[in-house]
């Protein structure tokens, strides 16, 4: 090996390694930094008080994250209820029934849906979903509502999550060997029976993981939800009331956070909670996917 070649090899290899390690260490760095920054608030009150108290008065030094966490969970679960059936049915159709032409038409459609920025979804939510909830749905239930509600957030979020979950479901359904379907068909099962008994069963882990990852994505989604959810600090079981999810809290208050004592720590803690929850869900379900792929 010539000397020049050796030097080039040395530097480019070094750069490749550094690049990779920086990226892999990133979540750790973010986690540590957020923990350090949210440190001061722990001296003020304990973790259980922060997580389970529902009193939010930053100027009075009271930081209870419960309303925000519950709002986030509520919106996420609603979006899951709306999107899950559509995702799984569409994924079955695309991988089992659809013609090649339809598939080659649908893949770009899913891509584009996944690529639409969240602010555009939020705008669509304000234009369509909010008036619909406020003017048609709420009077139907005899409730007075502005339309900026948890339900609107759930609907917008459901539409946003469909392409993401659908892509993963299609990936998972594609791994089912053709022979398996053919074997059940040859035993006299109808196409649907073979899907029900062999494909869905074979992919059960993949389906659960796709939904889990979809939930994590919905949990962290910020702008689209924030635009339609109303942003009122309260705990309510009624989906026609306004809510205030965790990401919206961070996004709405960064302007004031340096002027009120402890406020910046509280918001950094909110980011940390978000990061930890999403990371744990991601690591768990990705692990499930890798386990099943190996077998």
């Amino acid at each position: 090996m010539s000397r020049r070649k050796a030097i080039i090899q040395y530097f480019s290899q070094g750069w490749m390694m550094i690049a990779l390690f920086v990226i892999l260490l990133l979540p750790l760095i973010i986690g540590i930094a957020l923990t350090c920054k949210s440190g001061p608030i722990f001296r003020l009150c304990g973790l259980d008080e922060l997580l389970f108290s529902s009193i939010w008065k930053p100027t009075g030094g009271q930081f209870g994250f419960l309303p925000f966490i519950l709002s986030s969970l509520y919106v996420t679960i609603l979006s899951f209820i709306f999107s899950a059936p559509v995702c799984i049915l569409a994924a079955i159709y695309l991988t089992q029934f659809a013609s090649k032409r339809l598939i080659s038409f649908m893949l770009p459609v899913i891509d584009i849906l996944a690529g639409i920025p969240s602010v555009v979804y939020g705008m669509w939510g304000i234009l369509i979903v909010v008036p619909f909830v406020g003017e048609s749905l709420a009077p139907f239930f005899n409730v007075n509502s502005s339309g900026y509600t948890i339900l609107s957030g759930g609907i917008v979020l459901a539409v946003m999550c469909i392409p993401y979950v659908l892509n993963m479901l299609i990936e998972s359904f594609k791994t089912v060997p053709n022979g398996l379907v053919e074997a059940t068909l040859s035993l006299g099962a109808t196409k649907w029976e073979s899907i029900k008994h062999s494909v869905l069963r074979k992919c059960s882990t993949g389906i659960i993981s796709a939904f889990g990852l979809g939930l994590a994505k919905a949990f962290g989604e910020t702008l689209a939800v924030m635009m339609v959810v109303g942003n009122v600090v309260q705990i309510s079981g009624n989906p026609l009331e306004a809510g205030y999810p965790l990401p919206a809290l961070i996004a709405n208050n960064y302007g004031e956070m340096l002027s009120i004592p402890m406020y910046d720590s509280a918001l950094m803690l909110a980011s940390l909670i978000l990061l930890v929850i999403v990371m744990l869900i991601n690591l768990f379900f990705r692990y499930l996917i890798y386990k099943t792929q190996k077998r």
């Binding site: 990226i23 892999l24 990133l26 979540p27 973010i30 957020l34 990852l213 994590a216 994505k217 949990f219 962290g220 989604e221 910020t222 990401p247 961070i250 996004a251 980011s271 978000l274 990061l275 999403v278 990371m279 869900i281 991601n282 690591l283 990705r286």
Partner: peptide
């Protein structure tokens, strides 16, 4: 897993 971190974080 990194891909899943929300952009607000």
């Amino acid at each position: 897993a990194l891909w899943g971190i929300p952009s607000i974080v």
